[in-house]
Design a protein around this nucleic acid. Sequence first.
DNA 1: ATCAGTTTATGATATATATCAATTGGGGAG
DNA 2: CTCCCCAATTGATATATATCATAAACTGAT
Lengths: 228, 228
Amino acid sequence: MSLECSCEACELKELFFKNVSTDQLNSLCSSRIERNYSRGDYIIEEGRYIEDFIYLKSGLVKLFVTNDNGKEQILSFAKPFDFVSLLSLFSQKKYSYSVIALEESTTCNISIANVRNLILENGDFSMSIIEKMNTVSDAVIHESLEIRRRNLRGRIAYVLLHFADDIYGKKDFELPVSRKEIAEYIGMTTENVIRALTEFRKDGIIKIYGKLIEIVAYEKLKQISEHG
Amino acid sequence: MSLECSCEACELKELFFKNVSTDQLNSLCSSRIERNYSRGDYIIEEGRYIEDFIYLKSGLVKLFVTNDNGKEQILSFAKPFDFVSLLSLFSQKKYSYSVIALEESTTCNISIANVRNLILENGDFSMSIIEKMNTVSDAVIHESLEIRRRNLRGRIAYVLLHFADDIYGKKDFELPVSRKEIAEYIGMTTENVIRALTEFRKDGIIKIYGKLIEIVAYEKLKQISEHG
DNA sequence: ATCAGTTTATGATATATATCAATTGGGGAG
DNA sequence: CTCCCCAATTGATATATATCATAAACTGAT
């Protein structure tokens, strides 16, 4: 039985289910569903019932809300090891935000009833999930405050550094989002996002080839992010 | 023994410890400390080690962060039944925000080791604390997004309605914060907060007597909050 | 009671950001 | 392959908000 469960070999097992017994893992495993998404696919739709605990095995996604006049506000970007359904998993019945894949992405979905049972019977697992939840919500709140206290240039610098440092781990990368999406993330207009990027390019801080960004003057960018 | 525990009679017991056995409650009770704070007192100081699980029995507090240049950003206001130390309780060792009493406030503090033990041994309690955590962080994130998508007037309207509807439950109340603190909450300058309030007064939407605010045209204020 | 410091308030001005308009280029649907 | 829509870009202008300056009212401390 235990040999048949592919969760045993999952690289994310240690991260999240290290305190789960083999029996419990097998139970999770039998009910779990893995899903693949292409760029642009909805993984979670705002307003839908929360039925699964979802975590991202690979790829990159954006979390966002849509307000009455159809405008989108991006909450956060999430990469593997982030638990995209974690924010409001048990606070309410319906999702209060949507999630869309920015790259080819794979999720592992576990029925929420199973997770609930695991919480009820396994204290170590509870502790682990609480820590993860706190970490995720802390990060989202922190991010929001960081963005809010910056001006346009500071926000753009912050976002570029976020992609370079936290998401891709290198100074040159392909932007997984449009200028418009950056605008929706930092709360400014698309035109001004473009203008700031152009300014950085003209100042020799970054190079731009369409979606490709290369950070040339990393320290300078850091300085702009920190002191405007 | 159980008769001596004042937690048995605490009006917040049902809200948070309904799934806790009498023995467990007594254990919590013996280690708990109740603290009183006056307006302006620090309840939590950013950077301090998280040693207690803290909830607000009475009063009103503000949660805020201080950035490098000494400016404060207010995250949220919390009233009784809110769990002020809940945001990052288990995500890290130190508080990433401060909490100050805005009115006479009383907290109940329980050692974090006790709460941790309770999580490990009591699944229902775990479930309950997870729901509370999700609710608190959801609210803070939601609040932040709501504020962000409004202009100055909309933000001020939103804040006034927040105090009237969510905090005081009536249309006339004494502002528990300065104009400067409102500014720190909505991310605008003090002068512009004052100007917007004055505008609302001149338009007959509110009456102002120093800190006393009376909402005269509630629907109008609602409309400004929703559509600028 | 007085002084110092902060809060509230208002006006004038500067600055940042949004809006509107026009152009170019690319990607997807048919 | 072509058409059309959307993304990216740039410029001109409008608007919102910040900044600076000033003053009155209030608050707390001595």
